[in-house]
């Protein structure tokens, strides 16, 4: 079972979100990927206004609406617009089909403004995904590092949070999050550098590591290789490729009556 934690509607052909989703699924089929989590629309916005949030989330709703058995939608939120974000969370998750939250680079995730979003998402049992990077060439103004998500996770110790990209520079990212047990590592969206997954499993345990691709801008291959090529037990590969994500998602899937 392979579930992909991290996909977008970019990097593939198609005039509509549905067409792009269809293309992505067709390629995922070649790699044996059963389910794709998708978030953010087209084009991307670093610091989206409430209107842009709604537009991008509508595109994702369109995309997943056509492929409900293959896709999961995460709602894109911006902590700079708390009321609008909470409204989107209710529209897309509480009353809609989405099952997760995506937070990107508009605001560092360590700030307390995020707390209402985390609280409400936790009430809804939504999976929470926060982008992070330790970028040696410089982070974007609001871009979080894994140290930011550690702060957030300490304030919400019972809420599982996914550390997107594991900080990109994974040797730093894994170290940063290893002591905070409610943080999970996303393998997606960096180069397939050998040793990444071995270190993640060694330091975090296989139960805290999830495969994701960052497709379509990344290839499924380069990201799957982080798991297939790693010198770790087969049981760990199964956890990373899908079982961990399924376990994180089961509460909300059950609550929504979604079979998986």
């Amino acid at each position: 079972m392979i579930w992909d934690l991290h996909c977008h509607l970019s990097g593939v052909d198609g005039k509509t979100p549905e067409e792009r989703m269809g293309q992505l699924i067709a390629i995922a089929d070649r790699m044996g990927i059963e389910r794709l989590c998708v978030y953010m629309g087209m084009p991307w916005s670093l610091d989206p206004s409430p209107e842009t949030l709604r537009k991008e989330n509508d595109q994702v709703l369109q995309a997943i609406g056509k492929f409900p058995k293959r896709t999961f939608g995460f709602v894109y939120l911006n902590p700079k617009h708390i009321e609008a974000s909470l409204a989107e969370l209710d529209r897309c998750v509480a009353r809609g089909p989405m099952v997760g939250v995506k937070l990107w680079v508009a605001q560092h995730c360590s700030v307390p403004e995020l707390d209402p979003i985390i609280k409400r998402a936790a009430e809804l049992k939504a999976v929470i995904f926060q982008h992070t990077w330790f970028n040696a060439t410089g982070n974007k103004p609001g871009e979080s590092t894994p140290l930011d998500i550690v702060e957030l996770a300490r304030r919400h110790p019972t809420v599982p949070l996914i550390c997107g990209h594991t900080g990109g520079d994974w040797e730093l990212g894994i170290r940063a999050i290893r002591g905070q047990k409610n943080l999970y590592a996303d393998l997606a969206g960096s180069e397939p550098v050998a040793g990444y997954t071995e270190m993640a499993v060694r330091e975090l345990g296989a139960e805290r590591v999830s495969y994701g691709s960052d497709a379509g801008g990344r290839s499924f291959s380069s990201q799957l290789a982080k798991v297939f090529g790693a010198n770790i037990p087969e049981s760990a590969k199964k956890l990373i490729l899908g079982e961990n994500l399924k376990r994180l998602m089961m509460p909300i899937l059950k609550a929504k009556g979604i079979k998986a």
Binding site: S219, F220, A225, G229
Partner: peptide, 12 residues
């Protein structure tokens, strides 16, 4: 890199 990255691209 993990060798498998390039190899899987032939399949993708």
């Amino acid at each position: 890199y993990y060798f498998e990255s390039a190899k899987l691209k032939l399949q993708e």
